[in-house]
Amino acid sequence: MLKATATQLYDGAFNLFERPMLALQRLFGQSRIAWVFLLPNLLIFGLFTFLPIILNFVFATTGGDRILLDDRPFVGAEHFASLLDCESYFDPNSCHRDLFWRAVGNTGWFVLMQVGFMILFSLITALILNRDIVLRGFFRAVFFYPVLLSPVVVALIWKWILQRNGVLNAGLEGAGFGTINWLLEADWAFFWVVFVSIWCNMGFYVLILLAGLQSIPTDVYEAAEMDGTPRWRSLLRITLPLLMPTMLVVMVLSVIRAVQAFDEIYVLTGGGPGSATTLLIQYIYDVGFATRPRLYGLAAAASLLMAGVLFVLTMMQLAATRKQSGDN
């Protein structure tokens, strides 16, 4: 009885959709019907992704401090020339836009340190959490928890810890050590920016690497164990090579996220002291929105340059992935 009712319901629902679908197929033809289904998504994608990219190009090639395009004179590549006007790219002081090049340098260092150490720590953590340790579930949750927090909350928590009269200095003072102005010394501020960024993002990559580790067949390890292969050799010759596709995904994602870092750093240091922790996104925000006059064109040009670098990096990593897939 129940089965019969369910079948009737299914048939009813099927008939409800079948007729309009058949009508659509007749109208557009079988080969073009796919476009009808893709159209809503394409429209949304075009409106909210492609159109802003095009607008970004338009802003980058027009000048002034007005937003409406009618009020913006065409200046061609002037903004790009201004950003790239440097005697030496390794000395920001020799550049016309010194703050842009400081931000480029800071971003380069940040990506190198943050991505490098984050992958290392994530891998170590994933390897440990992949073993049969006590309270494994609890520790997995603990490492993932910061990912759930808003970057602003993370930054505020760490600001309370690191400020002059913060928890860390109170602890150091209590233990008889001297205190340090962690966020006012350029090198320390940069260190903490990298540290906090790793702290709040690591759990996400640990999770991906953990999934990668669990997808490695256990019989490979059993065979190695039977051959008397030491553990470190299994790690180097089995785990890491088989984990490499996952590592590449982690690398692509973490590089893109590191280049886009903004909110937690902005709240933690405001880009300071001076410009010691100003990354590219903050430079773009400052130039386009926080200072006067608002140089939307310059900000758009800087964002396009950044997008170009990101595109090249991503292509390189994808090429590496493809090469590896081919090798395998």
Binding site: L184, T269, G271, G272, P273, G274, S275, D286, A290, T291
Partner: peptide, 13 residues
Amino acid sequence: RDVWAGAGGGTYQ
């Protein structure tokens, strides 16, 4: 030092 060195750009503090 915390007031001026404690931020970057033109941020008010």
